[in-house]
């Protein structure tokens, strides 16, 4: 489904990713881990064409990512970062923002679908009336997930998606993405999140140093430990 074949990404002449190769098939759940600044998030953003590789190729459903198919790929993939962008002042507007775009204009979700998804993510209905500026980081992450679910996305790129969630909401998110039907490439250091994943990719200095069906000991270092470990 998503394949990196010897992908190198450079910025200002410096390689951020070097010869990165992996293959995530449909319904598989992968987690990328490693020190901060090692290139984990760049892998996610490269997958959706935010960086054009200077070497190697990215494939989606066996087709190389190109200018011709990037729009379709982006429409199939959700990217949820640590601080998701809501893009509107009111939460309801932010949930419905994608449906203001031409391509989704006929797919506006019915109210009961919105309610069902909010419930699934442990979000109260009254969150819809709130201002984006007053909701917590954890709520923002779940609203961004809800929006992607309203768009019926099945491929999720998740960057530390459980980092701001309380235990109960985290459980709800983990249960949701643990289901079949979702293909996931994530970046995380959360042991609970790791339990939902079956592919563990370790990144060091822009290179993949290990791909396995279980993480190594460095996976659960906290951010503090990672930062004092000599990385940036």
């Amino acid at each position: 489904m998503v394949k990196f074949d010897k992908v190198t990404v450079e910025y200002d002449g410096k390689a951020i990713l070097k010869d990165v190769s992996f293959h995530i098939r449909e319904n598989e759940k992968a987690v990328i881990y490693g020190k901060s600044g090692s290139g984990k998030s760049t892998i996610l953003t490269t997958a959706v064409g935010a960086h054009i590789p200077s070497g190697g190729k990215v494939y989606f459903n066996s087709a190389p990512v190109s200018a011709d198919n990037i729009l379709q790929i982006r429409r199939a993939v959700a990217f949820i970062g640590q601080e998701p962008v809501l893009g509107a002042e009111k939460i309801r507007d932010s949930l419905l923002l994608p449906f203001s775009y031409k391509v989704n204009s006929r797919k506006a979700p019915p109210e009961d679908k919105i309610s069902k998804i909010l419930k699934e993510l442990h979000l109260k209905e009254d969150v819809l009336q709130k201002d984006a500026s007053v909701v917590s980081g954890g709520e923002k992450q779940r609203i961004a997930i809800a929006r992607a679910l309203l768009l019926e996305k099945r491929i999720f790129l998740l960057d530390e998606v459980t980092s701001a969630l309380d235990p109960e909401s985290k459980q709800a998110v983990i249960e949701l993405f643990g289901k079949d039907g979702y293909t996931i490439i994530s970046v995380s250091h959360d042991p609970d999140w790791f339990k939902t994943c079956s592919i563990f990719i370790k990144v060091e200095n822009g290179k993949i140093s290990r791909i396995s069906d279980s993480p190594d000991d460095s996976a659960f270092l906290t951010h503090r430990e990672i930062d004092t470990d000599g990385s940036n």
């Binding site: 959706v48 935010a50 982006r74 990217f79 989704n104 768009l151």
Partner: peptide
């Protein structure tokens, strides 16, 4: 706001 911009593209925006 690179990531914000990318989010719009990923939501289907032209």
């Amino acid at each position: 706001n690179e990531k914000e911009f990318l989010t719009y593209l990923l939501m289907g925006a032209s």
